[in-house]
C-alpha cells in the first residue's frame, strides 16, 4: 500500500483527486490539505510514502514545504504538481528534494502512474531538467568540500547524458548496456545525490545564486 498525502489549494480538485487516488488499488489517501503551513505536523501524523505537492500555494510555497519535509523525513518521496512547465521552478523544487513533477492537465491515469513511479525512487526527468541537473553536478564539484560532496558515477553521468538527449528508458538501457530497472536505480541515485548535495551549505548557497540570477 502506498500512502499518499495531497497538498492542493483548489477545493474541487482536491476532493476529486483524493477520490480518484482512493479508488485506485494499491494507493491510500492519508489526507488532503489546502496549504502546507502545518506540513511537518501532517507528516508526523499521516506518515505518507508519497506527497503530491502543488508548486504554488497560498501560505508557504510548495518548494519551501519540500525543503522542510525533506529535512525531517528524507525517506518521503515528493511529486510536484505544476500548471506550466516552468523549468526554473521545477528545477528549484527538485533541488529542494522533490523526486519528479507532473503537469496539472495530465490525465488521472498518468497521475496514478507518476505516484507509483515516484514511490519507487524517482519519476523520469525531462531533457531540460536533466540538463540543468547535469550542469549543476559539473559546475559545483568545485564549490563544495570533497567530503561533503557526492559525485556522480560514470554510469550515472552517462544515464543523465542520455536523458538530456531525450532518450527513453529502453534506449538508455540499450545504449548503456544495462537493464531498464537498473536505469531506474541509477535515476533514483541521481535524485538522492542531488538532494544531498543541495542540502550542503556551500551548494545551496551557489544554487540560490543560480536561481536568483536565472
Amino acid at each position: 500500500m502506498i500512502r499518499v498525502a495531497l497538498f492542493e489549494d483548489i477545493k474541487e480538485i482536491r476532493e476529486l483527486l483524493s477520490e480518484t487516488i482512493e479508488n485506485c488499488e494499491g494507493l491510500l489517501m492519508t489526507g488532503a490539505y489546502a496549504n502546507a503551513n502545518d506540513a511537518l505536523k501532517v507528516m508526523k501524523r499521516d506518515r505518507p510514502d508519497v506527497v503530491l505537492m502543488d508548486i504554488q500555494m497560498s501560505g508557504i510555497s510548495g518548494i519551501e514545504a519540500v525543503r522542510t519535509i525533506k529535512a525531517s523525513f528524507p525517506e518521503i518521496q515528493i511529486l510536484m504538481q505544476t500548471v506550466f512547465e516552468d523549468n526554473a521552478r521545477i528545477f528549484a523544487a527538485i533541488c529542494a528534494g522533490a523526486s519528479g513533477y507532473i503537469l496539472k492537465d495530465a490525465s488521472p491515469e498518468r497521475y496514478l502512474d507518476a505516484i507509483i513511479e515516484v514511490s519507487q525512487g524517482g519519476a523520469p526527468m525531462s531533457p531540460v531538467i536533466a540538463r540543468k541537473v547535469l550542469t549543476m553536478f559539473q559546475g559545483q564539484n568545485t564549490a563544495a568540500p570533497k567530503e561533503e560532496y557526492h559525485e556522480l558515477s560514470p554510469t550515472e553521468q552517462k544515464v543523465l547524458g542520455c536523458l538530456v538527449r531525450g532518450l527513453s528508458y529502453k534506449l538508455i538501457a540499450d545504449e548503456c548496456k544495462i537493464s531498464i530497472s537498473t536505469v531506474n536505480f541509477h535515476l533514483k541515485n541521481i535524485y538522492r545525490k542531488l538532494h544531498v548535495n543541495s542540502a550542503t551549505e556551500a551548494i545551496s548557497k551557489a544554487l540560490r545564486q543560480q536561481l536568483t540570477s536565472s
Binding site: I10, E12, I13, L16, L17, E19, T20, K104, D105, S107, P108
Partner: peptide, 8 residues
C-alpha cells in the same frame, strides 16, 4: 483545474 476536473 478545468482540465483536471473534467478528467477526474
Amino acid at each position: 483545474s478545468l482540465t483536471m476536473l473534467s478528467e477526474l
